[in-house]
Simulated scan of single mutants.
Amino acid sequence: MASANPKTAAGDARPPAPPASTETIADPGALGLAGFAMTTFVLSAFNAGLLSDTLETVVLPLALFYGGIAQLLAGMWEFRRANTFAATAFSSYGAFWLGFAYYISHVAPKLPAAHAYQATGLFLLAWAIFTTYMIIPALRTSGAVLAVIVLLAITYILLTIGAFAQSTGIDKVGGWVGFVTAVVAWYASCASAANSTWKRTVLPVFPLG
């Protein structure tokens, strides 16, 4: 009896393509930017000299759970969405906040007091370098994201100089630039959440790509 499908019988037919996946992943950018913004905002209050340094440990819970873990998770989801820039940025800055929390709570107290500023300066310098080169891929994202990265690079550079020079004045300037960075990141987060929820442009992010 002849086969109902001659091509199959001949052995040259390909199996039918699997149905298209209906799985969707929400944009994790709003979460990543929000975690980054809030933690930066709180830390900048101390860098700008608005609050006593004796209260700075209030940053640690945010650095661990929101700026750290939540932002790291956002980076992992961005890998799933094949967004290399966002995946690299969120994963890295999530790791920064986790590392910062560990550094402040476990490493800094054990450093020699006379040279601790050099360790802090080196730590910040490495992140200044990373953030500065991230400006290049950010040029293909949006004006809002580019502004966050540029402002963050300036913040890191100022804090690095302030640490090596042991200058509270430069630290304060870095803190104020950090405030602006946090506000712009909050705007980008709000725009991402609002535009995704309303399915239209509610707040512009000024695409560059």
Rank of each mutant, 00 (worst) to 15 (best):
L125C: 08
W186D: 11
T201V: 11
P61F: 02
L50E: 03
A188D: 13
L125Y: 03
T88N: 05
L152M: 08
A87V: 06
K199S: 15
A114I: 05
T24R: 06
A86Y: 07
P6Y: 01
S21I: 02
L62A: 12
N195K: 01
P15M: 07
V148Y: 00
V107I: 10
P18T: 12
Y117A: 15
T132R: 00
T155C: 01
N83H: 10
A95N: 02
D53F: 07
P207A: 13
D171Q: 12
P207V: 06
E56V: 12
K172I: 04
G49T: 05
M38Y: 06
S92H: 07
G99V: 04
P28E: 12
V145C: 07
A9Q: 15
A144T: 12
W77G: 14
F46V: 05
I129A: 14
A48M: 02
V180F: 02
A26S: 15
G169K: 09
A26F: 05
T84K: 02
D171M: 14
V150M: 04
T181A: 10
Y156D: 08
Q118I: 15
F164L: 05
A30G: 15
Q166C: 05
S105F: 04
A4F: 02
S105R: 04
A182D: 01
S105N: 08
T132Q: 03
F41H: 02
G169N: 12
W97C: 12
F36K: 03
A147M: 04
T141M: 07
Y133D: 07
Y133E: 05
A4R: 08
A87D: 10
T8C: 11
P61E: 06
A37T: 08
Q71C: 04
L60W: 04
T54W: 01
A113D: 14
S189W: 03
S189V: 11
A95P: 00
L60D: 12
F41V: 04
G35A: 14
N195H: 05
F130A: 14
G49I: 00
V177Q: 00
P16L: 14
R14I: 11
V107A: 11
S142Q: 09
W127E: 04
Y66M: 04
Y117H: 11
N83Y: 04
R140E: 11
T57G: 10
L151V: 10
P19Y: 02
L50V: 10
A48W: 01
G29I: 08
A74R: 05
V177Y: 05
T201D: 14
A193V: 08
G162Q: 05
S192C: 12
G169D: 14
I149P: 06
Y66E: 10
A182L: 01
L62W: 04
T57V: 11
L159G: 11
L62H: 01
Q166I: 05
V150A: 12
A17I: 10
T54F: 01
I135Y: 05
A182F: 00
L51F: 14
N5P: 01
